[in-house]
């Protein structure tokens, strides 16, 4: 067997074993796993399945050194500028929450649940009501309504805007459930008749606070020259 094939086979075996190891870890022990990465033991989330208030971090990455949240710097000089992208600090769709190792803060009110993405402070608002409003205005994160079915928060979202502010015809149904110290979001996304399924996992991180990440800070230092950021005059 050629060496590269043996390597690939070994990687495949290791991947299967690693996946099996991960899924076999009880939810209640994951916080302890995180604690071995340099933080103190984390208090578990509240036992009430409807109480999802607090900081949740997408993925299962190691915590940042020290306490508190990471802070993004400005984009590097020469970064191509794309209209409607995060480079110009426009709100973006945050299904699954923040990116770049950042966290999400959930605040649970009796009439509304909000998820604040640390990344650029983008916001998802879930109104706990039965119907979407008439003449709903397309927004980057759409219009979301939710209700509880037992331990599961069911969220129905429409009116997601595209870069031009037009409704891109996306419909998302999410079933969000707290499973131990993990928040699991099963999303069914339908756009123009095509349906995809995605699952977003986030870990309970009571040791973190969501930082005031300000996208526009980078643009107080840079000029835009020929569609690219330039710091020669900063």
């Amino acid at each position: 067997m050629p060496a590269d094939i043996r390597t690939r086979a070994a990687l495949a075996v290791w991947s299967v074993l690693a996946f099996a190891a991960i899924v076999s870890v009880p939810a209640t022990s994951r916080a302890a796993d995180l604690a071995t990465d340099g933080t103190t033991a984390l208090a578990p989330p509240p036992s009430d399945p409807h109480d999802i208030e607090g900081v949740w971090k997408p993925g299962r990455s190691a915590p940042p050194p020290g306490s508190g949240a990471a802070r993004s710097g400005p984009p590097p000089a020469g970064t191509p500028v794309v209209a409607g992208s995060t480079l110009v600090c426009a709100p973006v769709e945050r299904l699954g929450g923040a990116g770049g190792g950042m966290s999400n803060l959930w605040v649970v009110g009796p009439k509304e649940i909000v998820m604040i993405s640390e990344e650029d402070q983008d916001v998802r608002k879930i109104y706990l009501q039965a119907h979407h409003p008439r003449n709903v205005i397309p927004q980057p994160n759409g219009n979301s309504i939710g209700h509880w079915e037992g331990d599961t928060l069911v969220v129905d979202s429409i009116a997601f805007s595209d870069a031009n502010g037009k409704d891109k015809g996306q419909h998302v149904v999410e079933r969000i459930q707290k499973q131990g110290d993990r928040l699991v979001d099963h999303a069914t996304i339908t756009t123009k008749g095509v349906t995809t399924q995605r699952t977003f996992n986030s870990d309970w991180r009571p040791d973190l606070q969501v930082w005031e990440n300000v996208c526009e800070e980078g643009y107080s230092k840079f000029q835009i020259i020929n569609g690219k950021l330039d710091d020669t005059n900063s």
Binding site: P91, V107, G109, E112, D122, E216
Partner: peptide, 22 residues
């Protein structure tokens, strides 16, 4: 702006550049 009253924190959700105050 919208105020959301959670159990352990309140959120003031501002329309102005979608800012929030916790």
């Amino acid at each position: 702006f919208n105020i959301v009253q959670g159990k352990t924190m309140y959120a003031m959700m501002f329309e102005w550049n979608h800012l929030n105050r916790i």
